[in-house]
Each structure stands twice: as structure tokens, then as C-alpha cells.
Design a binder for these strands. Structure first.
Lengths: 152, 152
DNA sequence: GTAATTCGTTGACCTTGATCAATAAAGACG
DNA sequence: CGTCTTTATTGATCAAGGTCAACGAATTAC
């Protein structure tokens, strides 16, 4: 998935690890990670039919099953339960965005890192620190310093 | 709506202006504003059935129509179109959270203020500056300085 | 009309995290 | 094994925005 195109697909990751990023002055800012059994898409662009501000790339070798919006809509007509899934999906995404926003509103860099450590240790294990830094919207040096402080 | 209680209602504002806030060390951090024809709720608590981390208060004298979750569910059974509204609502809230998060990930305080000025001038007109500051997660002094720089 | 609040502005100084540069580990690969 | 490349750590310095305090303007209360 490239920046600037309207995202008209959703992927389901069978194996591997992907990232979805914004660009800011040429740096990547991580919007989200996704791995096995996660959906991956620029759902914002998908829903609004506007050009994507994000790019989606692999971090590890990855196998993804992709379905287009068209195909999904057709499926929806013959299998009405898909509407329900879609509602749940919207809800889940809302909750996720909300949590992340809340963390930016209320927590310091250090608190965000600590929470990520305890709540998503799977991610922190698997993903290099400089990507974690980007996800928390801080520089890798800052993560390094936070770690130092909290192991003294 | 008080912090700590599970939010099991949604309000529709007929007239007036409300705010929904987090608390951080005794200060209010504005999560959102809502006015005429807007829904107001701690939808996060509503959906997850967990105690609210927010408080909802009036900024102006306000008239609100309130419906409980129970009542809404019952209505949903007799009027299936409500399921559709609920999906749209989730979607809209996702998009809103996304935009706000994106702004925190990519923009400076000054850029966030400028965007708010151009995109939500209705709010900026109507709401005292110190509340706008809180919504943008900066101090009132900072808004004051941003304004100064941009009128010189 | 004057006092008392409340909100916005300004200045001096401080803190958090960014930037830049150097170095150290840790993997990848011949 | 040693070399090359990528990631992590550390130090020195800088900038954005926060904090604290003073002052003004505007609104409300009496």
C-alpha cells in the first residue's frame, strides 16, 4: 500500500509482521503494527475513499490474504452477518484509537513506554527499539534513556 | 456523568454546549466538546462496560435528551435500522479519534491550533481560549504566544 | 461606579525530549 | 574468523513548550 492512493482493500495476515506508517519530513512515524491473525489496511482511506496518508510495509517476511472493498461488499449482500462484523470492527478500531489518544493526552514518554512494556510485551520483544520509539512518537535515544533510568 | 461510574446512557443535545474531560493531577484535560445536534456520552465506557475515566459537564446552559443503553437496545430490536446507525456512529467516532491522534503524531502545538482555527472556527469562536488550549493539550500561555507570533 | 472575579498576555526561568556526534554491541556475510 | 552494516547507548547541546508570577482587560456583583 502506497501513500496517495485510495486504499480499497483489507488484508488478513497469515504470518509475519507489518507496519503502517505516516511520513513526516521524510521520517516514518509508525501508526500501527500488525501480525498473524490481524487485519491490515488503511481503514481510514478505505472508509472515506480519500487518498491514503499512510504506507504499509513488511517488517518480516509476511503472507497476507487480501480482499477488495468491492468483493467484500458483494459478499456482504449474500452474507448479511458481515455487516455485524463490520460494526464490531469499527467499534474495536474506535477503542484502539481512543486508548492511544488518551495515552498521548495524559501520559509522558516514559509512562507510554512502561504501559507498552506491560500491555504489549509481545510487540516489544519482537520489534526493534527504534520502531517502538516511533510508535510512541519519541526518538530512539529517548527510549534508551528511559530504559537506563528504570534499571538503575 | 461522573468519573468512575459506568456510562450507560447517550445524550442528544438540543441546545447549549458541553465538555467531556479527563482528569490529570486535578486539572481537566478536554477530550471533546459537544453542542446542538451532537451526541454526548462516554462512549468508551458505554461500549466496554468499564468505569468511565471521564466526566461530562456543561459549559453553557444546556438541554439534553438522554436515553439509556437498555432502552436503546430494546428499541434496536423493534427498529432494526438502529443497528445501521450504530455502525455509522462507530465509524464516525473512529474517524474522529484517528484525525485527532494523527494531529498529535504529526503536528506541533502551533500547527494543531492553526488547523483547529481553520477547521473548527465555530468552536474557537464560542469557547474560551483556555478550554481550546486544554483540547489541544497545551497551556493557555502557549496559545497566547502562538497567536502573538501569527499576527505580527 | 467600584470592587472582585475571570480570562488573556507577557516575561523570566525550567524541564522534557530532540538533535548531533561519537562509540559500542550485535547480527549478517564473505 | 574478521569485516560490514545495523541497532543501541551515551554525552553535550538545543528547542518547544511548561511553570510561575505579574499585570491588564473584561465581566459580574454589589
Amino acid at each position: 500500500m502506497e501513500e496517495g492512493k485510495i486504499c480499497n482493500k483489507v488484508g488478513l495476515i497469515e504470518s509475519g509482521l507489518m507496519k503502517c506508517v505516516f511520513h513526516k519530513h521524510g521520517d516514518e512515524i509508525i501508526f500501527e503494527f500488525a501480525f498473524e491473525n490481524n487485519f491490515i489496511s488503511d481503514y481510514y482511506s478505505f472508509v472515506t475513499d480519500t487518498p491514503s496518508a499512510k504506507e504499509i510495509k513488511c517488517i518480516e517476511d509476511t503472507t497476507v490474504y487480501v480482499i477488495t472493498k468491492d468483493r467484500l461488499n458483494k459478499l456482504g449482500r449474500s452474507h448479511p452477518f458481515i455487516e455485524g462484523i463490520s460494526r464490531q470492527m469499527n467499534e474495536k478500531l474506535f477503542l484502539r484509537m481512543h486508548d492511544r489518544l488518551k495515552s498521548f493526552l495524559l501520559d509522558t514518554a516514559s509512562e507510554r513506554y512502561m504501559k507498552l512494556m506491560s500491555e504489549r510485551s509481545d510487540l516489544v520483544q519482537r520489534i526493534p527499539q527504534y520502531l517502538i520509539a516511533s510508535y510512541l512518537n519519541v526518538k530512539p535515544e529517548t527510549i534508551s534513556r528511559i530504559r537506563k533510568k528504570n534499571t538503575l
